[in-house]
Write a protein that binds this DNA or RNA. Sequence first.
DNA 1: ACGATGTCCGAAAAGGTTTTCTCAGAAGGT
DNA 2: ACCTTCTGAGAAAACCTTTTCGGACATCGT
Lengths: 343, 343
Amino acid sequence: MARRVAQRSSGRVATLEDVARLAGVSIATASKALNGRTHVSAATRAAVLEAAARLSYSPNALAQGLRAVRTGIVGLLTSDLEGRLSIPILMGAEDAFGVGRTSVLLCDARGDSIREARHLETLLSRRVDGLIVVGARPDPRPSIGRDLPVPVVYAYAPSEDPDDLSLVSDNVSGGRMAISHLIEVGRRSIAHISGDPSYGAAQDRAAGALAELTEQGLELAGGRVYFGSWSESWGRSATRMLLSHTRDIDAIFAGSDQIARGVIDALHRAGLDVPGDVAVIGFDNWEIFTTSSPPPLSSIDMNLETLGRVAAERLSAALGGDLRKGVESLPCRLVPRESTTSA
Amino acid sequence: MARRVAQRSSGRVATLEDVARLAGVSIATASKALNGRTHVSAATRAAVLEAAARLSYSPNALAQGLRAVRTGIVGLLTSDLEGRLSIPILMGAEDAFGVGRTSVLLCDARGDSIREARHLETLLSRRVDGLIVVGARPDPRPSIGRDLPVPVVYAYAPSEDPDDLSLVSDNVSGGRMAISHLIEVGRRSIAHISGDPSYGAAQDRAAGALAELTEQGLELAGGRVYFGSWSESWGRSATRMLLSHTRDIDAIFAGSDQIARGVIDALHRAGLDVPGDVAVIGFDNWEIFTTSSPPPLSSIDMNLETLGRVAAERLSAALGGDLRKGVESLPCRLVPRESTTSA
DNA sequence: ACGATGTCCGAAAAGGTTTTCTCAGAAGGT
DNA sequence: ACCTTCTGAGAAAACCTTTTCGGACATCGT
């Protein structure tokens, strides 16, 4: 109860009127002084600032948002339970907007479209300046609607509606990047073990890998892409299958870091050294896996923070009237570690 | 541009006044009708509802928050980069408040106290109804301040100030739980490999484990707790050390799931079967690790969603005048999988 | 027919801020 | 001395909703 009393004793939170009264000026003048507007004398401004400090005045953002065109809040609507995608994207967006200038309202729909609709309603009712929609898997997802009163950017999972603006990672070039790195470190017999083939990302990464191999005059070791599931155990069993088929392999490009861990495990059990005998590169650059793996795992990073940052920039641009549409691909980034570059 | 035009053509977003005009009633009546208040005839109410639907009216939450005592927004201030803690806590809180009734503003301070202060300022300026502070590690952290105008609940990491209210997982009972489970499945020679001993959680879990062992008349296998770091590689090397010291071990309680993975790996390399020869249980129930591990890893779950739910309840109670203080411990939960229960 | 009792609805205030417009006064020019 | 121009300051509107209070009207009992 102590705190409650203290809170009460200081009265309700200070308002601009309180500041103005203490400084002996009008509300209008106080507002202008605090916002650095012109037509206020230096002495008056100082007095207002001092009064505001004394009262630890904090402007009511609700009232500001009510008056102004912008509220300084954007909604992040996600279905990504783990937060593995949303958090980097959120941080990128936060950076782009600048701390304190814009806040992010995070809503998790948990894959439920009804819940998503409710969240959307709430966000619109809070008059967010814009929306970022993050899907759980990198395949096209239904649009949340046309003609919404605020701009929307889809990140990671593009919208099915070509009139929406979507930002995705360029998985094709990511696949190329992985292969070209392996070639650069001197590998020639490269296999590719990936996840669920129904994922566009799996197809894209494989396509990029194959394109790069072809351009370099190489063929895929193992004869085909080993599609399966996004799991460590698939990485293990696929590697065993691969090795039983051919031992002429000096590198494996895994479709995800989890798969890569399974791959490395299976290689070790087969008595092969990583990267001595076989180099391994993953995808996602999920730190939990890349750093704890023995040896630390090279990987392709999808630059999710950048995705978030660009999403924020596109929203800002849209607020300024510059609407874009279509799918925009952002490049991935190679993060080499010891699993491909023998120390 | 198409969208922009459409947006413009429909004019600005509908307001209560528009609804009232369309329904042919006053603003006051429209408000009462929409909010289910009394003193409105059924016919009028129907007309208003119909008008609201036609205009797809959505009440301006800013204006509501300005007038009402509550804004329906709570702030979640975290320093948990991965979102591994924050997201479950956020979801629990969301559940407790109910979708649509309260939104959560997520701010990540990234371990920077200046950034934290800025975020706090922003949140207060947005007149959040309450704050949940989530620390990155489960040790006491500085209070964000006394006499804040809103109630605050610390989750996971307690506040250093005993006048604050903190919710933490009961790591002591979690440790007991792990040991008692291992004993139940018939193990007697139980070792404990844990993380950084400077973490209170490491000490608490070990204390609980030792207490339970003592009560059951058992001694810790290996003679001591193997403290180290929260990493997979520590799990591996500690296990090797342990095995070189004694082979009389039929269970290992790992201080985290990551450590447990290293433990299992080392056991496998030593030619031991899990759980045939040695049962292993982890801590955190971090799905990424528990399900991908061969075999699936039993673990102790800290019930972070519950933490979030209770945090939300305490905030609601505080808004109702029921302020609490001190540290409240919430029980953990055993999640048995195959690493302790031979299928 | 008249007062009493309800029922339904509208006017207006309040909540906090920003911005526009007006006004007073001072400085400067002729 | 008078007019212009400029600067500083305040009054008031606008943003949108909720709620209180009072008014209009109908119903009912006598």
